[in-house]
Write a protein that binds this DNA or RNA. Structure first.
Lengths: 160, 160
DNA sequence: TGCAAATAGGTGTATATACTCCTATTATAA
DNA sequence: TTATAATAGGAGTATATACACCTATTTGCA
């Protein structure tokens, strides 16, 4: 290897300040920060119902779909199948959902219980308040573009 | 209570389809979806180094700060203090960071080890590739506005 | 028809997250 | 100076996340 190439390589691997500083713009880090912050806001709002934000959204999805398999629900939630399995556990334990085998014995069908629907009805106005607050503070226009961009991020990764 | 008010209350608490459907626009749910997706992309890119995206960003922050307390680092990372304590554990176990008591005996000072700097130097170009790919696919302009919006979300919550 | 491939799902393990409650140390004020 | 408040941090507990690997069932084809 020529001296020139060695120098290039050394430069390439040197960790200088400005180069490291750029890492603070990490898309992943900033998404995670925003998610941590916003999750606390929604969790706080939903606390009277005993639901976490993630649980609320899963229940909503199940209500809309009425009856859905684990794999299908995982696809919709852009969630690993095994993650969903674990996330359904506390919902089942609290009696909010019911999980039974489908006609295809491999599948597990998830549905809301009556109790689940009741809790969801109590949670809905609380969620609406939190959502309205976020949209108001962010501004409708900015919120719209954020929603669109988040959707773009998801499809960007799926097409990888 | 008058019949009129009872009706209003019934309407307020009724869970009709369009109202439930709006919940799919949940800011929290969509942020979490995007975060799950993008985290997998960065984790995949960093896999050869054995670092997760979160770990990479923490190491970067520690490198920039050179020496930092747990509470200060948690503030910067917009992370619960107890979460950070747990997140530092695997980094310490892998010998990437060192945690020692400060002059103020209550504080714990976090610094990078030589090994930590080496791993970070290996990870840096991998992160840069992932970051460049995301910016390219999203488009520089869209990425810029996403970054700004995520920052806005964080400060929005902090000001609550 | 019978067997391999595809599909649906769960477990083990490890990290990520944060709330509640706890201890230890430092700062402050009576 | 000493009692108290404030600060820094950790432990217990529970949820959230996903990879690697496993089993059971169904499908499709030779």
């Amino acid at each position: 290897m020529s001296k020139k190439l060695e120098d290039d390589k050394a430069i390439e691997h040197r960790v200088d300040r400005p180069r490291v500083a750029k890492c603070m713009d990490c898309t992943c880090f900033n998404l995670r920060k925003a998610t941590r912050a916003i999750t606390q806001l929604y969790d706080e709002s939903l606390r009277p119902t005993g639901l976490r934000a993630t649980q609320f959204s899963l229940l909503i999805a199940i209500m809309i779909l009425e009856s859905v398999t684990v794999t299908r629900l995982a696809e919709i939630a852009v969630m690993d199948r095994t993650t969903l399995t674990r996330n359904l556990r506390p919902l089942e334990k609290k009696g909010l959902i019911k999980v039974v085998s489908g006609d295809d014995q491999r599948t597990r069908i998830v549905t809301l219980t009556t109790h689940g629907k009741e809790v969801l009805a109590k949670a809905l106005p609380l969620w609406e308040k939190a959502q309205a607050r976020v949209i108001k503070r962010l501004g409708q226009e900015r919120w719209n573009s954020l929603q669109a961009d988040l959707g773009e991020v998801v499809s960007l990764v799926n097409k990888s």
